[in-house]
């Protein structure tokens, strides 16, 4: 059985806008329309899209705090908005910009409250606490009030809080937002390990594409409330028409180089950027440039997932 099944789900909001002194006209906004996907147990899926694409709306429906206006969805065999209380035992949620911890209390107290909220058996609670304290470096923080924690520390605290009751699925909404490079990589390592060891299903929404590249075997791209891509990273590159870039430093500034099979995308003094299809070999291109110009130095940039995503976003027309 799939962990998450979403079939033809849509969600629209009715907004009332003032259109005169007293008059208000209602108009409907489709936050998500015709969304369908399934996620298998143990998968780690990146869920990305520009602001306002419908990511948070989807997550809210998957936690049961928002009812879809159409379609069906189940998580761990439960219908979220109907069986929200049972589902809460099976899912963990981290909203990167909010905290599930109690602001004025030492970190430890939040966990003790969560133990009671989720009725975690004492033995289970102790093992989980021991594991997370070690893996997330929480030992020093347990007696510190949450309001005194740094953003990175708080995020680690929040991740532990979301996993304390052994959920089957965890939704991470921008877990690395605002973190420095070291904290990010530690967090990713922890998620990788937890996914591997506990078979945890992870849905990760992020704007940091390195999160996706390093964690997710599968990516779903949503734009204007519709799923515009669902597949692995390689397929994403193919769909996005990934290109590599040859960067050449010439001995002196010249006009943009014209060579068939490559496009000069940028010129900056003696340095030029030539984009070419990712699957083509760079050798003939280098040879062709060298034949016509004096090359001082060169390097090749691999396709950037960011570019790929941008291409997908800009190539999908807004519906209607």
């Amino acid at each position: 059985m799939s962990m998450i099944e979403v079939r033809d789900v849509s969600r629209s909001f009715v907004l009332r806008r003032r259109s005169g002194r007293w008059r208000r006209t209602a108009h409907t906004v489709h936050a998500v329309s015709g969304l369908s996907f399934t996620v298998e147990p143990g998968e780690m899926v990146g869920y990305i899209g520009p602001n306002g694409a419908g990511k948070s709306t989807t997550i809210k429906m998957l936690t049961g705090i928002l009812v879809p206006t159409g379609g069906t969805l189940t998580v761990a065999g439960l219908t979220p908005y109907v069986e929200r209380t049972q589902l809460a035992q099976r899912i963990g949620v981290v909203f990167g910009q909010r905290t599930a911890l109690w602001w004025d209390l030492p970190l430890r107290d939040s966990y003790e409250l969560l133990q009671r909220i989720y009725r975690i058996p004492p033995a289970r609670y102790r093992t989980n606490m021991a594991t997370f304290t070690e893996l997330l470096d929480l030992a020093e923080l347990l007696d510190t009030p949450v309001r005194q924690l740094s953003l990175g520390q708080r995020m680690r605290g929040d991740i532990a809080a979301a996993l304390l009751h052994d959920p089957d699925v965890v939704y991470l909404d921008e877990p690395t937002i605002g973190l420095d490079v070291v904290s990010k990589s530690k967090l990713r390592e922890f998620l990788r390990q937890t996914n591997r060891e506990r078979g945890l299903t992870v849905i990760l929404t992020t704007h940091d594409l390195h999160d996706i590249e390093q964690l997710c075997s599968r990516v779903m791209v949503i734009d204007h409330g519709r799923l515009v891509f669902d597949g692995d990273l390689a397929a994403l590159h193919a769909v996005g028409g990934a290109r590599r870039t040859l960067v050449v430093d010439l001995s002196e500034p010249t006009d943009p180089i014209t060579i068939p099979g490559a496009e000069t995308v940028k010129v900056e003094g003696p340095r030029q950027w030539l984009a070419f299809p990712a699957e083509a070999s760079a050798a003939p291109l280098v040879a062709a440039v060298a034949a016509a110009h004096d090359i001082a130095d060169l390097s090749i940039l691999e396709p950037d997932i960011e570019d790929v995503i941008t291409r997908i976003y800009t190539s999908t027309p807004p519906p209607g």
Binding site: K60, T63, G64, I65, R84, T85, Q86, A88, Q89, I91, V93, F95, R98, T99, A100, I117, Y118
Partner: peptide
């Protein structure tokens, strides 16, 4: 006001 109440709502409490 801050929207944090969403966190309260998905808890089984």
């Amino acid at each position: 006001k801050s929207g944090d109440v969403a966190v309260d709502l998905y808890r089984p409490v």
